[in-house]
Amino acid sequence: MYAIETRDLTKFYGKARGIRQVSLTVERGECFGFIGPNGAGKSTTIRTLLGLIRPSGGTAEVLGLEIGRDREKILARVGYLPSEAVFWPGMRVREVLELSAGLRRRDCRKEADRLCERLRLDPSRRVDQLSFGSRKKAAIVCALQHEPELLILDEPTGGLDPLMQREFFAILRERNRDGATVFLSSHILSEVQHHCSRAAILREGRVIACGSVEDLARTSARRVSFRGRAGVEALGGVRDLRVSEEGADFLYSGGVRELLAVLAAGDIRDLSISEPDLEEIFLHYYQEGGERT
């Protein structure tokens, strides 16, 4: 039994596209990345899984339970972190956490206190006086305090400073070690690469690639920029080449040795090889022949 299994899951908002025939499986206990730019359909997929919206087609099961029909049973075992946490103004963090626990009919005070301490969140603060990052922390505690079997996280690190991001992912790793499944939706590729074992890439509502993060990264191109001169035009796997008087900049998906040989033979004063942004990754997948699941 999978933690999440979707088959041809489709959602249209009237005539507007939400997601089209999304099929993916998330194993129990794994940390699964769900990558795509804004508007790709990540949140639509998540909202469908959580029963906030009804699918236009296809089916999905969460923890072996059918979405829609078993909505409450699913939500009792899931912790959800929205991309933008909104609470009722005037409430204190402690009251929000108690409301969340009350709706679950659970006493989560001990775990809530522990999480607040780790995330340095003052539960006596009013939520409308919190920064975006602190509101995110409150939402993280709400999502984790009942120790769910499945964590569905939508852009979880937005607003968190680097130290808090590190602490947050440390908590996630602990939960994952204890058996929880993590479904991490993000447009930050490195986040998924560092923390997930498998991932799916979503573009314009469709899954265009799904597999182990290692495989996805291996096939992905690199953005190469250098100052100076080198005969990179002759290299295979060069795309989007921009040459100026200062140097050159291009997307490279060929072999590393060939690249280094050409660069070494040239006159290079400065070199940068970095991950391309997500749009470039998508370009890469499309130019390689489209979908790969």
Partner: peptide, 14 residues
């Protein structure tokens, strides 16, 4: 309207 529906309806309440 206030954006709190998501919080309320992602809890196990029908």
């Amino acid at each position: 309207r206030d954006g709190t529906a998501e919080f309320l309806l992602t809890h196990p309440v029908s």
